Simulated assay, not measured.
Amino acid sequence: MTTALTLTAAPGPDGVIVLTAAGEIDMSNAEAFAEALTSAVTGATGSRLIVDLTEVHYLDSAGLAALFAQADQIELRTGPLLAPLLEVSGLAELTTVHQA
């Protein structure tokens, strides 16, 4: 069974590409998340890419692996739910994390 996940990539107000994820990211949809992330990184050539996780309510190791794979090319926006996970996993040391 696939867990509900919505992914949207669009330019933000300052022209920076924002990939917004909403729902849960787990092993059932991590491949789709990784593909969207790779596509957004490719589309953001020469620009920053912000991955907005403020509406993600669950993120497992498969989702973290997708983020780690692109850590040097992304910035993260997150809320209080995922912030501790990003710290403990070490991802916050590899990329910029903005608290929403």
Rank of each mutant, 00 (worst) to 15 (best):
L86Q: 00
P80H: 14
L81S: 04
S61G: 08
G46I: 03
A40K: 06
L59I: 05
A62R: 03
R48M: 12
E87R: 11
E75D: 08
A66P: 07
S61N: 10
L85Q: 04
G46C: 03
G79V: 03
A65E: 09
I50H: 08
H57V: 15
V51C: 07
D72S: 12
G46H: 02
L86H: 01
L81D: 05
F33Y: 07
T54C: 14
D72F: 06
D60Y: 02
Q73P: 00
A65M: 10
Y58F: 15
S61C: 09
A69T: 07
A71H: 07
I50E: 10
T38I: 13
L82N: 00
A83K: 09
T38G: 15
E55N: 11
S47W: 13
L49G: 00
A40W: 06
V51N: 02
L67A: 01
S39Q: 15
A65Q: 13
A32L: 10
I74F: 05
E35N: 15
A69Y: 09
A44Q: 03
T78D: 02
A83L: 08
E87N: 09
H57P: 13
T54R: 15
V88K: 08
A44L: 04
S61F: 11
F68C: 03
A44M: 03
L86S: 01
F33R: 04
T45K: 12
S39C: 15
G43E: 14
T45E: 12
P80F: 14
S47D: 14
A62S: 08
V41S: 12
V41Y: 08
V88W: 06
A83W: 11
G63D: 00
Y58A: 13
L64I: 07
E31R: 13
A40L: 05
L37Q: 07
L67E: 03
A40S: 11
A62F: 01
E87V: 12
L76F: 03
